[in-house]
Amino acid sequence: MALSRRNGRSRVTLLFLILTSITVLTLDFRGEGAGVIDRVRHTATDAIAPVRDAADSVFSPVGSAFSGITGYDHLKDENAKLKSRIADLQGAQTQNEDAVRELRELLALDHLDWVGNAKQVAARVVSAPVSNFEQTIELDKGSHDGIKVDMPVVTGAGLVGRVVDVSGSRSTVRLITDPSASVGVRMARSSATGIATGDGAGRRLTVGFIDVNADVRVGDLAVTSGLSGGSDIYPASIPVGRVTRADRQPGELQQRVEVKPLADVAHLRFVKVLQVTP
């Protein structure tokens, strides 16, 4: 008897909580309570930031050890490979510097913007993806440092993602590998355009809408096209990745193309936020 009465009361509580959740969910979804909800979200993020920073600095060596235990041999190998690669790249860089100067001059003649001229804010990655479902990272800079929603985020290698949420001292970046992210891309060699969508952590990007007759080969460089890719818009000419697969299936209207991101989005420590909003 007592048990069932208690269960009855808890059922009322549950019903109340479910209805409250659905109300909050609906408000957020329809964007009507967005101001209030965003403020609550941002206040919570900012308030807990110092505690998380402390915990992060204590536990990141533990985390590194945790992943290092399994990958030590791999790291030694990789180190040797990287050293020889640096030498190659230094050579290529000197050639590129001249090309960049030429490009800048040509674009300036036509009064066109180039993304390489954009102001940049360097930021430290303070949190890996918190959720198992989202590919988002958190940066230690926010609106106080001039970061706004929709700004592109890059590393020296290439595109990382896009700012989706900003509070005073933090900002959240959706990585290009997130399943809900999409990037309008152009193949640098053949100018074929398509839309690259994420497929989760550690996976390649799938590029849709590439014409069957377009000349796309493995190894081609994909850069942002500046065209709207689904919901996300990026400025043109940011390197995204290299083509790892390009198949034509008989009877299909588009090619199957996969791109491997140039930036190692799973192990980011520092990134740059480009201060341009498309």
């Binding site: 959740s21 659905i22 109300t23 909050v24 969910l25 957020d28 979804f29 909800i37 609550v40 979200r41 919570a44 993020t45 918190v130 959720s131 479902f133 989202e134 988002t136 989706v164 949420d165 959240t172 959706r174």
Partner: peptide
Amino acid sequence: CFLQTPFG
């Protein structure tokens, strides 16, 4: 508070 999915 730390997710991009709808709040709630």
